[in-house]
Design a binder for these strands. Structure first.
Lengths: 141, 141
DNA sequence: TGTAAACTCTATACTAAGTATAGGGTCAAG
DNA sequence: CTTGACCCTATACTTAGTATAGAGTTTACA
């Protein structure tokens, strides 16, 4: 199977497949005499696994860890579970951050109707007023 | 005020300040005869405004729009409000995505205890099993 | 058999929002 | 006069790919 067929089957772009190879997530395939990549079904499975992990927003590095662990069936799967746990925590953290942001933004947005002039815009005033300069003597006021 | 002082007052790195200048968020400052940047308090205010916007996770481009709008006090502030509204929507969307992800991850994670071997790891099995290959007969040939 | 389309190859540049470094120049104090 | 603290520009690096150039290869069809 050449890279185009693999791309069609996985739904990943050809460039993405070559990118995963460069990142050593996907092992280097055989080459035809004309230097075309030639893939087995194993590569297909591997790529689908990678795709699944990416869909879960895992980074290349996280996927690397999982793949490495997966290569040793007798080892403990603790590392994998740690990776997943950490990843879940990261996402939780990001959600919390974004919620705080959203609240701030909605609060700021509430200061202006849509038909106001710039110089009277409550949103801009709010954005300006939050500004505080760090000085040597003064902290927060 | 030289760039080091400005960096200390704003809490932004020197490189970030130069970066904002390159991105034309911050107008080019005067230069001393030795080619050092020399800033006014206006630049300080501008930078704090930018910092505030970045803290709200607005992109450089969004901030550009807001700054441009802000430069014309008589104009309507509709553009600014639209920018903020769109930004709020983006964040909402991202939060929703992340929540879905988190659920999936927690569900996957629930398939394995920590002291299992790789070959019996429910997490790995789950990751593998979701995989589905696009076949030629279903989509295009 | 010729050729044009479709496919593949490598290498490079680009994205966002900076950070980090190299290799210089400038300034104040001791 | 030299040391250290600044400052300058230019470049490379980060993530997870995407997009392109310029080349070579294979396939379809007349």
């Amino acid at each position: 199977m050449k890279i185009g067929a693999l791309s069609a089957k996985t739904g990943l772009s050809i460039q993405a497949i070559r990118f995963y190879e460069r990142k050593t997530l996907l092992s280097k395939p055989e080459r035809t005499q004309s230097n075309y990549r030639s893939y087995s079904d194993e590569a297909l499975q591997q790529l689908m696994f990678i795709k699944q992990c990416r869909a879960l927003d895992m980074t290349i590095e996280e996927i690397s860890l999982v793949l490495e662990a997966r290569a040793n069936p007798e080892n403990s799967c603790q590392d994998i579970n740690e990776t997943i746990d950490k990843h879940i925590e990261n996402i939780e953290h990001r959600v919390d951050e974004l919620k705080v942001l959203q609240k701030k933004l909605v609060s700021i947005r509430s200061n202006c109707a849509s038909d106001t002039k710039i110089k009277e815009c409550g949103v801009l005033h709010k954005l300006d007023s939050i500004v505080e300069v760090q000085s040597a003597s003064k902290s927060n006021s």
